[in-house]
Design a protein around this nucleic acid. Structure first.
Length: 529
RNA sequence: UGCCUGAUAGUAUAAUGGUAGUACGACGGUUUUUGGUACCGUUUGUCUAGGUUCGAAUCCUGGUCGGGCAACCA
């Protein structure tokens, strides 16, 4: 078995491409075959080396090794010879008609097309004209080479499809060598055959092309590659077409192709998704011919499952409020040990965290009038400070606007974590950092890019449905000191807040974290009576 | 109103013509120094009408609904 992943280098890869990559490489891996990476670069006006490089990087990052790095443009000489071959068989002709004339002569799905006078040109004349096309004797659009098949076919793709068009354009690989370029239909299957691809896997919209794919292969008498189709991936609350993604970038709705809200591979990477999580996702969604709409919650499940096993736990307070432990000595500090990951056998090591009289805690972990089953703080309530002591809230202070500014607690010295003789049982455990030892960092929280499940399928322009709150920047969050050693590309769990990773713009002086995904949140505040 | 294609729980995806299963979600419970994790349980499905058959999600016929096809794009 030999498969191929055949992107056109005209944009960045997205999660839908990941499905195709996992399918093509996965199938070959499963059945002891190989996979080629082939760039479908037959349209020089849209393609760039920048895209080639990013595509290679993304496929590699996903964890796949291609057998050969190939380009459709490598085959231009062979494909040209194929065309001559068909002309000699009387199966192709040069047509001087304009695009509009060709379209008109093609008819409609319910009416047959009509032949024009060029269809009967002699083989010799066709050869001469085609060579002249190649030699640059004609301007763009003056002539095309067409396959002579059946203008009355119920399949529009068989009504004498265009094989070659004239484009005096610079190609990112072949330079100015060519001024005629084969169309997709006369390049893709031919490239497959040249490489002896056994399974040419593509998406559903190419089903009507398959008879043409087969027709060229049969009449050229070349390796019989076979085309198979599957339904492309659709994810809700986002868009997946290159055109729309490009628009989001160009109109500044997102920062760039790798904006963490984008469904691109580079965006997911910057957001903190791992290759394993994306491969797992592609495995779970399955492959079929049915049109589908996958729920993003499945993608989120996959990254949580991966990161839960690998991410080190750290404490960070995103919306801080000060807690003062009134019975803790002012100049005293302690180091509290906390394991890196409770999922690992040995905790995967650990680190010490400074504890003192003044701490930052999460504003939402305190309520003036806590409802029943609120296992956090309120006057008279007790919680465990993770890896430290149990504290009891005594009172709180408010400013003139009614905002809570400080929470005063007392702690139980005999309740120290790992050495608790207090006999006190509390329901809640909250995270915290020391006011005197924590660092600050910018934290970026992301939400779905669109407000509706299927923005492309709504009445208005898809951009009308952008979620205005898809990015929330917290300029100053407090993080435990050890997070200053955070490594790019590694995921961290900010306890109770989600998984985070360093952003590419982060510097030692100005740390920036992206939230990959929240933790699953089972807490539902009880209905207010 | 031409041709092609598809239809199984909320979303996906399985089932030589032989017990409709799995995952995610939702809901409930146990454990828990993360309202996380883990574990246990509950919930909901073969588009429709006929036919073949001892037996149909599967085969046949009609219908309904969805998607695609008439770029010198891929």
């Amino acid at each position: 078995m030999l498969t191929r992943f055949p992107p056109e280098p005209n944009g960045y890869l997205h999660i839908g491409h990941a499905k195709s990559i996992c399918l093509n490489f996965g199938l070959a891996l499963k059945y002891g075959g190989q996979t080629n990476l082939r760039f479908d670069d037959t349209n020089p006006t849209k393609e760039e080396t920048e895209y080639v490089d990013s595509i290679k990087a993304d496929v590699h990052w996903l964890g796949f090794e291609w057998a050969n790095e190939l380009y459709a443009s490598d085959y231009f000489d062979i494909i040209y010879a194929f065309a001559l071959n068909l002309i000699r068989k009387g199966l192709a002709y040069v047509d001087d008609s304009s695009p509009e004339e060709i379209a008109a002569q093609k008819g409609t799905p319910t009416e047959a097309g009509v032949p024009n006078q060029f269809r009967d040109r002699s083989i010799d004349e066709n050869i001469r004209l085609f060579e002249e096309m190649k030699d640059g004797k004609y301007p763009d659009g003056a002539k095309v080479l067409r396959a002579k098949i059946d203008l009355a076919s119920p399949n529009m793709h068989l009504r004498d499809p265009i094989m070659y068009r004239i484009k005096h354009a610079h190609h990112h690989r072949t330079g100015d060598k060519w001024c005629i370029y084969p169309m997709y239909d006369f390049a893709h299957g031919e490239s497959d055959a040249i490489e002896e691809i056994t399974h040419s896997i593509c998406t559903l919209e190419f089903i009507p092309h398959r008879p043409l794919y087969d027709w060229f292969i049969e009449n050229l008498e070349i390796f019989p590659s076979k085309q198979y189709e599957f339904a492309r991936l659709n994810l809700n609350y986002t868009v997946m077409s290159k055109r729309k993604l490009l628009q989001l970038v160009e109109e500044g709705h997102v920062e760039d192709w790798d904006d963490p809200r984008m469904p691109t591979i580079s965006g997911l990477r910057r957001r903190g998704y791992t290759p394993a999580s994306i491969r797992d996702f592609c495995e779970r969604i399955g492959v079929a011919k049915r049109e589908n709409m996958i729920d993003v919650s499945l993608l989120e499940f996959c990254i949580r499952e991966d990161l839960n096993k690998t991410a080190w736990r750290r404490m960070a307070v995103l919306d801080p409020i000060k807690m003062i432990i009134t019975n803790y000595p002012e100049d005293q500090f302690e180091e509290m040990y906390s394991e890196n990951n409770p999922e690992a056998e040995d905790g995967d090591g650990g680190r010490n965290i400074h504890f003192g009289r003044e701490l930052w805690i999460e504003r939402e972990d305190f309520m003036e009038e806590p409802p029943k089953k609120f296992f956090r703080l309120g006057v008279g309530l007790m919680v465990r400070l993770k890896s430290a002591y149990i504290v009891k809230c005594e009172y709180f202070e408010k400013d003139a606007n009614g905002n809570v500014t400080e929470i005063h607690c007392t702690y139980f010295p005999e309740s120290r974590s790992g050495n608790d003789t207090s006999g006190i049982n509390v329901k809640g455990t909250i995270h915290w950092v020391s006011v005197d030892h924590s660092h600050s960092a910018e934290v970026r929280l992301y939400d779905r890019l669109f407000k509706v499940e299927d923005p492309s399928n709504e009445d208005e322009d898809f951009k009308e449905y952008l979620n205005p709150d898809s990015l929330q920047i917290i300029p100053k969050a407090y993080i435990e000191a050890d997070l200053a050693n955070a490594v790019p590309g590694k995921g961290y769990q900010f306890m109770r807040k989600g998984y985070f990773t360093l952003d590419k713009h982060s510097t030692p002086d100005h740390l920036v974290f992206n939230r990959t995904v929240t933790l699953k949140d089972g807490w539902k505040s009880p209905p207010t009576p």
